[in-house]
Design a protein around this nucleic acid. Structure first.
Lengths: 219, 219
DNA sequence: AATTAATTTTAGATTTGTCTAAAAATAATT
DNA sequence: AATTATTTTTAGACAAATCTAAAATTAATT
């Protein structure tokens, strides 16, 4: 069975909105895919026929086993290509998302497996998100939100909570990137800002919003 | 200006059928693209509106400067990706065409340039075809059909005339591939077969059809 | 519980790329 | 030159994915 790019994008969007909780609503999907609710209804009927999801009128949708398998295959390709772009082609980690959105729809199974092997079977992409293996299994991330990191515990930045250019601009300015080592030195309850220290630099404070957008892992 | 995958495939097909001679006929295009003449007519009208080609009723089509530029960009991507698949991912050179047909439509300009640099700016793809550079210029191949190679002149296989699996199966069996060094030892006018000698092997004869499908360059 | 608000679905239209069947133009042949 | 054959175009229809506007359903609020 093979699917159109549009169908794959719907499946991926449902997968991302589904995480545990209940069914995905028509409106939520329309927003995620920058389309209209009426279009979503049509597509959900079609994807139900193809047995990729369960769907009842007015009740939203939920991926079937088949649908989840497809979603994981797409996510796998997306993240492997992101890793390739950053690691092999030296792209900035803030400029790979768009390109990977296209590459994730290349269908060759063999290509994915060869690419995975060439890259050395990476388990996390440049944004810190886990890459599903060829069976769809993902490593569980022991990453923690920077806001939750205990004082004076050395950690390494391993992911960001968004791909907005505004965030990435700020990170570039502060010289924070994937792999940056840091410790939290102090927290301020007034505005929930926190003071962090990067190796060989003076400490400085960052806003609550920024800290919430950063994921770190103890090192 | 951006184009659909279908439009790009039409432009590429016209480019390949156009080589020097006159205009490309509707029927020739329909055959090349496995579609019907009526569909081709519709698309030619559309591509004319987009100024990618000139077209007059019943007179066939010919690419404009713009159209040629687009065609060269697509061919560039196709051949760079083929090179990548063989050189970096260790694909067999007989299994890359299909995948490259998909990859050639990835739009990112930056990706193409970075890929080119990563590969070391190769000038010929694994089938021996020249790769257009970023300005659309191709190296001129001083390659010659094996049938035209003078006796006892050492040469190296640098291209094949078709991608048919039947041909590639035969080449694999005879241990002939890109880079294989050989000399022509004798020609037989009866059936136009030729006797060739590969370094460290006994000479053997190959058919006229096979010789015509092989391109070599003096070395 | 009744009314209002929000969400979701239907109905009908549009665009892109395709098709078949019939008409028009060009090319080949006697 | 007239007829036949081939090629190409038109006309009308269809499937995929989308849209707007109106109707139906569900959720929220008074």
């Amino acid at each position: 069975m093979s699917f159109t790019i549009t169908e794959e994008n719907y499946i991926k969007a449902i997968f991302h909105l589904q995480q545990e909780d209940g069914n995905v609503s028509t409106n939520a999907l329309a927003a995620e895919l920058h389309t209209k609710a009426a279009s979503v209804t049509d597509m959900l009927k079609k994807l139900k026929l193809k047995k990729l999801l369960s769907y009842e009128k007015y009740q939203g949708a939920r991926l079937s086993i088949e649908g989840k398998k497809l979603a994981l295959a797409i996510v796998r390709k997306h993240r492997l290509w992101e890793y390739f772009l950053v690691d092999t082609l030296q792209f900035g980690w803030d400029e790979v998302h768009e390109v990977a959105e296209e590459l994730e729809h290349i269908s060759s199974k063999k290509l994915v497996e060869k690419l995975d092997a060439f890259l050395g079977f990476p388990r996390f992409d440049p944004h810190g998100d886990p890459i599903p293996d060829s069976h769809g299994k993902m490593a569980i991330q022991q990453q923690v939100n920077l806001i939750d990191l205990p004082l004076n515990k050395p950690a390494e930045v391993c992911g960001v909570g968004s791909q907005s250019t505004q965030l990435l601009e700020l990170l570039k300015h502060k010289h924070i990137g994937i792999g940056t080592r840091l410790e939290v030195k102090k927290t301020f309850s007034f505005d929930h800002s926190i003071e962090i220290k990067i190796r060989n630099q003076n400490s400085f404070t960052i806003s609550q919003q920024l800290a919430q957008a950063l994921f770190v892992k103890p090192v």
